[in-house]
């Protein structure tokens, strides 16, 4: 079936779409009440986040916009130390969207929500003119356990930085499909629930966590260095990048340091906790390639740098100062 403006009318066609696609897949007690708003249990410190997903293509190697929107929202909650509980989703469908594709997206969303341990408790659908696109906005709510204090401002001198896996897979997978460059790269979109739960279970003293999304590792770490007023030094040789992604970047003149992921995170922990943290992350789903990639230094003591600097030690011993991504990161010419 093809989505038409009638599916956004609020009448019979809308009800049918909601019943056959969304309610069926997301099925839970809160949503099933079909009231104007969802009423949920919870108390204490609440983490709230929202995100919009406009990726093209909507289905890509290793994932789709449905899995992506759950992962993106859940991971943002996790990065503040919250336990994600509830999601809402707003679908903006363009006329001409194929309901078979929509079903696949929604089913993938439901499956990813189950994997991440969250319930989709409220939703909305609108139809606009267009060419069959599907856009999704999500909001997420999570609860922060007592005593957990994780923030971009908490980096401490002496912390080591752990990266949970290979860089650039999501970005390369998307770009590869968009440019029709055949390759075996698949998106890493994944919820990091188990990884964060393990860190907490093992009582690792985590100062900062950040998921490595748009802008890539360099942009994320530069922001952390500025927010915490420290120098971050990375070892280029330690950065995990698969050969496929490295070659893909080489072909297009892109830098894996600026390529986005959707299932990777950075954790800053005191040096003496590094082994414990690595063990917790590697034990979790999607964390097997976790490595220490750098450390946090005192701006007064660092060999070359001032507060807010992100420095990269190159394999020949050179130092490269990195900034956040500038512009769009377009492929270069030769």
């Amino acid at each position: 079936m093809i989505v038409t403006m009638a599916h956004g009318s609020g009448g019979a066609a809308t009800s049918e779409l909601i019943r056959d696609i969304f309610a069926k897949a997301f099925d839970n007690d809160v949503l099933n009440e079909m009231e104007d708003s969802a009423v949920v249990e919870g108390s204490g410190r609440i983490a709230v986040t929202t995100d919009s997903f406009v990726v093209t293509p909507i289905e890509f190697p290793g994932g789709d916009i449905g899995r992506l929107c759950v992962c993106g929202t859940v991971n943002d909650l996790l990065m503040r130390g919250a336990v994600p509980k509830y999601l809402t989703c707003g679908f903006i469908l363009q006329e001409g969207a194929d309901t078979e594709v929509l079903k696949r997206i929604v089913s993938s969303m439901a499956q990813t929500a189950r994997e991440a341990g969250v319930q989709i408790v409220a939703g909305d659908t609108k139809v606009i003119e267009g060419n069959g696109g599907i856009l999704i906005n999500t909001a997420g709510v999570g609860f922060i356990p007592d005593g957990v204090e994780i923030s971009a401002k908490n980096l401490q001198v002496g912390d080591v930085l752990i990266l949970s896996g290979n860089l650039g897979d999501h970005h390369a997978a998307i770009l590869g499909s968009r440019l029709s460059i055949s390759n075996d790269i698949v998106s890493d979109n994944a919820p990091l629930t188990e990884m964060v739960a393990n860190l907490e279970k093992d009582r690792v003293d985590v100062h900062t966590m950040r998921d490595v999304t748009r802008g890539g590792l360099a942009s994320v770490l530069k922001e952390l260095a500025v927010a915490s007023g420290v120098v971050i030094t990375l070892e280029e040789e330690k950065l995990p990048v698969t050969n496929a992604v490295r070659d893909f970047c080489g072909l297009l003149g892109l830098d894996p340091l600026y390529m986005g992921n959707e299932g990777k995170m950075i954790a800053a922990v005191p040096a003496e906790e590094a082994e414990k943290a690595l063990n917790a992350i590697r034990r979790a789903a999607y964390g097997e390639h976790a490595v220490v990639i750098g450390r946090v230094e005192d701006p007064g003591q660092a060999a070359d740098g001032k507060a807010g600097d992100l420095l990269l030690k190159t394999p020949i011993g050179g130092i490269r100062a990195l900034d956040v991504l500038q512009g769009e990161g377009l492929p270069r010419i030769c």
Binding site: G253, D255, D304, L312, K313, T314, I316, G317, G318, I319, R320, R332
Partner: peptide, 11 residues
Amino acid sequence: AAIAKSGIRSV
């Protein structure tokens, strides 16, 4: 680009 990325000037 390669020279900048290698950090060779600093050494």
